[in-house]
Design a protein around this nucleic acid. Structure first.
Lengths: 354, 354
DNA sequence: TTGAAAGCGCTAACAT
DNA sequence: ATGTTAGCGCTTTCAA
């Protein structure tokens, strides 16, 4: 009577409206939607039909308040515009959607204060947290992890489930590749000082180099972006290294730019290896040899693990995963050449700059 | 009595707990948090102190149910991994955060069905919607726009507020640039068939070309990614054009790749112009000449407009914005050269391929 | 399998 | 400026 105009019912049609029309108790309608199976299939059908006719939409908010499950997952990244995260987000998004969850994107904007604040505000409205790039301290994360199901990516913390690429193996592959090309010494361009991955990669490099009887050197820290790489190139003196492994692809790309601008050829004069294999790595010239981290898979895996935690109501289980990596060889690495000879035969290219 | 262990209070401390301890009515506590100013500053201070001690956290869910304002904004993109959206997301994210809002990321995964479903599920829990890349029809969007504050990006729909880059001017700039370089005919590589922006750009091209007495031709549609561009290059016959404007940067980049692989030099043999100026445009060799759309600004502007709608409780106001663009000239465009002469003097570069 | 009743934590009138 | 009283739309005991 009050309404029934088919399509656009004004304000919320509630469970009560449906109940009245379908001639059952409100609780039954509720059941029909949340716990079908616990309601007579005929009744359920009728309820569903009436609900459809009335244009009933369940209120996620009211339901969430009751059950404290919002079907929302927070995904924290330090910078959405970073292509590294783009892939991770993509994977997480896909996995979340597949499970009927929605992603709440939190961009920490490279600020710990901001990250804490937003997370705090949001925490109570999500079922779980994915920390893909965080400035938070280990202990802060451990605390969080006690309050909500949580997974860290690209970082390992005692008692906190995590998903990381196999950094050690990645670096080892890169080192071996470089060794095969005749390089005798490798320079590591490090990323953010406090980064777990950075420390991990440098240590692995040290080990792998020793194992292959190469010398290893570390430069940095540099901001892990193209600009950082350009700066690194500027810091190289006249006696620049023949082989470089950078903390990540952007740093490597920046380095190549900077080098090229100085008239130093890649890979003729110096070989450069990146880490992550972001899409651009294949687009630049020369193509970037890099350790391919399964970015998409990381996001998806982490999300699935998180959803497992959410479902089981568990916390802090040490459900950690190390994802396999591979080395993608492109044009930025080559045989070590005798040094100090001026560019004569043009084998490689390189535009821009002098 | 019951609890007061300082830090980690188990389950929710409510407004009632605070009220009891602070010796005021619950409603007063509520006011103190939602409408300070309407409560005696001393009382407010006391309440705040007690709340702190007790570790009271406001429940966004309960509040949202009551006020039906969640401080959540839905941002729909067709593919999170697309660098084009990365910038837009970034801008939106920043603007949202600045206003105390959080972004709910919805990846349509290039599927209209999926987009509708997710949006439907989510709609009731957000205060507004940002459609940055959508497969929805104009009428579907118009309907949505009647239910919730909504802004479309990169598209124009009658009665729906929007934020778009100045496509017309962008294309005009590109055409004029090409004309100045001596090109007499321009080929447009079109993107998604149903894309509003694509139609817009092609029409603008046609106009601008006519105005400059150039010939214009259209090829496509191609999928608006690198692969699409490569495919386009393959479709070019022996008599390829001297100047191309692509629907977007990825298409342009793919085209350059494909061309280069076929031994056709850019810009010597053909000049290529993109659209958007995504970060990679500056990273490839040669650098991509492109129309710089203010991606970040688009996201930010759209969000701010949306927030205005949300605040004013309005719908469908025609609060539309056209954002200025500029042409960024890099290495992918050059003077038109006499055709059919085999590559002799190497002026430009280009590695890869024969 | 269904109904009745109580309440989630908060806000919103309406009083005082 | 504060207290009182009703709910928001749903889920959840507990009974029937």
């Amino acid at each position: 009577m009050t309404d029934a105009r088919g399509e656009s019912a004004r304000h919320p049609v509630t469970i009560y409206d449906v109940a009245r029309v379908a001639d059952v108790a409100p609780s039954t309608v509720s059941r029909a939607f949340s716990r079908p199976g616990r309601v007579n299939s005929e009744t359920a059908a009728r309820i569903r039909r009436v609900a459809d006719e009335l244009g009933y939409r369940t209120s996620p908010l009211a339901r969430a308040q009751q059950t404290s499950r919002t079907r929302l997952l927070a995904l924290v990244v330090s910078d959405v515009a970073n292509p590294f995260y783009a892939e991770v987000i993509h994977g997480a998004q896909a996995a979340a959607t597949a499970a009927g969850y929605t992603l709440l994107l939190i961009d920490a904007q490279e600020s710990e204060r901001h990250e804490r604040a937003t997370l705090e505000r949001t925490l109570s409205s999500v079922d779980g947290v994915l920390l893909a790039g965080t400035r938070l301290s280990d202990s802060a994360i451990r605390m969080l992890s006690k309050q909500k199901p949580l997974i860290v990516l690209n970082r390992t913390i005692v008692d906190v489930p995590s998903v990381v690429p196999d950094n050690g193996r990645g670096i080892r592959l890169a080192v071996e590749h470089l060794a095969e090309l005749g390089h005798r010494s490798i320079t590591y361009l490090s990323g953010p000082e406090a980064s777990w991955a950075d420390g991990m990669r440098w240590r692995s490099l040290l080990e792998a180099a020793t194992a292959a009887s190469l010398r290893a050197r570390r430069l940095g820290p540099f901001s892990p972006d193209v600009a950082g790489g350009v700066r690194a190139a500027e810091e190289f003196g006249a006696r620049y290294p023949t082989a470089v492994i950078a903390y990540n692809d952007q740093l490597a790309i920046g380095l190549i730019r900077g080098l090229t601008a100085r008239g130093i050829r890649v890979p003729r004069d110096v070989s450069v290896v990146g880490f992550d294999n972001i899409p651009v790595a294949d687009l630049i010239t020369p193509g970037l040899t890099t350790v391919a981290a399964p970015l998409y898979t990381e996001g998806a895996t982490a999300t699935r693990h998180l959803l497992t935690l959410v479902a089981s109501g568990q916390r802090g289980t040490s459900l950690s995963a190390v994802l396999p990596v591979r080395l993608v060889v492109r044009g930025s690495t080559g045989r070590r050449s005798r040094r100090r000879s001026p560019p004569v035969t043009v084998a490689a290219d390189g535009d821009a700059g002098s």
